[in-house]
Design a protein around this nucleic acid. Structure first.
Lengths: 338, 338
DNA sequence: GTGGTTTCCGGGTACGGTTGCGCGGATTTT
DNA sequence: AAAATCCGCGCAACCGTACCCGGAAACCAC
């Protein structure tokens, strides 16, 4: 036989000659129950150390108080912070978070999403890596009427809420800062793809235009420091050398700084460097890195809020697109004027 | 009315004039069902696009296929990697992971643990921050007969499985390496507390004794780079200066390196530095940091394996203590002989 | 007094998949 | 012919809550 659990509502009900329904109503504070009965039930519940069986409860309410979080990778501090902010935001409402990650593999992302849906999560938050034109996964989620919110990587043609960094503003903020520091030949190590990377590049471009500065080289790096190192080496072969570099993200910037230092140049005297993301350790590098903080925690918090809103109002809520305003964090890698 | 779900077993059963039980047995491959009936059921299930209701299933089996993971903080890459390894290890068995974290607050840890237990997780993995003498939480878990495994921070007097780094070996490995590099005045920036930090220090001490080297200064730092920076500055005031430093962990080592460089000294020529943990970015610092890899992924993987073992064999399993063998990762911060 | 309505308090039933046990019939063994 | 075995399948229980209902008392108007 299966191991017996603790006391159930039936135990309480039988002891008091009432029905389970009455017990349920008392314990969940619903319906009209006389205060005499109410007191007896509460008393007996405490006496038997009654603990609600959440599973039975979920069975009938179809609410698991669980939300699924699907991330490309959570060893990256960016996603770690998001996960933390989400967990914190939903905890007061009694929700828990199931985290899955899919290593940037779109196929794995789909199966993991299906797996979370099969577990009847009440909602889903995803930083998707589905190819831009493929919205099959999201249609599948929508068909099941499970609320979901996209974060970090918007999907233009998917009708859903989205929370992410304001990438154009990030590009602008970083580039404007370099201009103010006196840089005139500003290069850009852009990231891969047409989404986030393209918008950060756009912010970069608009600032150069506004300031009537000549375009300098734009080279495509990847997500990590190795690609940043490689891309920067390419830049250093060219002439004239840039006097400022806006890097797609902090790891790329770290790789770039390493290449600059290896070439015997100084930061920020010869070349100033700006990253984006404000990852941990940005301040303990050889040269502390100026960066643009994209408001990571806020992304998580807002996403959680939007999701809970949708879960609570069983009606379809109009999707909202939220862009978090970035903040410049100035450190030594751009401080030319001190 | 509550939103109807998809097809249920009852739908299949009625269509075929069999009982739900038969359908269940076919779909879960149990019991003796004729191949004719089996085929009909499978056919109809596919036809109706039947999806099992996991909640109803959990209700009766008392298995949720969910394990709880309780961490102090998962923005730290160390815990991120552990979480990832665990999720990966249990995924093939159909388990999901609910992550909670408690910001190093023992009281919050207790309520979060209770909360996970109330959700009927099948098992628990925890990196606990309960004070060493207080095993109330663990007794509470044991009373409910929920399998659990401790990681990273052992609790001496709790009868349970444990997986963690071999801290004495880490201290030995790091210190031996410094000795081999020719260091003769080896200092130690130890971490706080009597557990991990004390064992790493012990490894350090035994190597000094074995090599008949004089003890150099041991200063207590914290967990992060700020405390490492501060502790190193203290060391730099003293004389004679050390020619090698073994740091409790990588952040402390990073802070220490910064202090050394600020003092105008060279790494590793004047002072060699070893950290522990092999966190990301250890290789893109001003001077790439030699460190001891504590086998983070293995900790997660082994912990998951031990937990699944316990969950599968409903009997009480003899607790195992597993120490992962660390590996030295040599980088520039100790390369004096090249 | 009579009939209708409202209010208060509480119960019956369905929802879901799984498991131990049992049952009826067919086949094989004694 | 009686008994043992086996095969295929069903009954009931598990557990908390939404929905619907029912009985009793109170109240109102005539």
């Amino acid at each position: 036989m299966l191991p017996r659990m603790g006391a159930t509502m039936l135990d309480i009900a039988k002891d008091l000659n009432v029905s389970v329904v009455t017990v349920s109503k008392v314990l969940s504070n619903k319906g009209n129950i006389s205060s005499a009965t109410r007191a007896k039930v509460l008393q007996k519940a405490k006496e038997l150390n009654y603990q609600k069986n959440w599973i039975a409860s979920s069975l009938v309410t179809r609410r698991t108080f669980t939300i699924g979080l699907l991330l490309p990778d959570f060893t990256h501090p960016f996603f770690g912070e998001i996960a933390k902010a989400i967990a914190e935001a939903v905890r007061p409402k009694g929700f828990h978070v199931i985290i899955s990650y899919f290593e940037e593999d779109p196929a794995l992302e789909r199966t993991e999403a299906e797996s979370l849906l099969a577990r009847q999560v009440d909602g889903l938050i995803l930083a998707s890596s589905q190819p831009p034109q493929d919205s099959e996964l999201f249609h599948s989620i929508q068909k099941r009427k499970v609320p979901f919110v996209l974060i970090d990587r918007p999907m233009e043609h998917v009708r859903s809420s989205f929370v992410g960094g304001d990438d154009v503003a990030i590009g602008r903020l970083a580039t404007e800062h370099l201009v103010r520091q006196g840089c005139r030949r500003i290069a850009h190590l852009r990231g891969p793809g047409a989404g986030i990377a393209a918008r950060r590049q756009e912010g970069y471009r608009t600032v150069l235009e506004k300031n009537k500065l000549p375009f300098h080289q734009v080279i495509e790096a990847g997500y990590d420091d190795y690609t940043g190192h490689e891309a920067m080496r390419q830049l250093l072969y060219a002439s004239p050398l840039p006097d400022g570099v806006f890097c797609y993200n902090d790891p790329v910037a770290i790789g770039a700084m390493q290449a600059i230092l290896e070439a015997g140049l100084q930061i920020p005297k010869d070349i100033a460097v700006v990253g984006a993301g404000n990852v941990h350790y940005s301040n303990v590098l050889a040269v502390p890195l100026t960066t643009v903080d994209q408001g990571t925690q806020q992304i998580g918090t807002r996403a959680a809020e939007l999701l809970l809103e949708q879960i609570d109002s069983k009606r379809a809520v109009r999707p909202k697109k939220v862009l978090i305003t970035p903040k410049l964090v100035v450190r030594q890698s751009t401080q030319r004027t001190v």
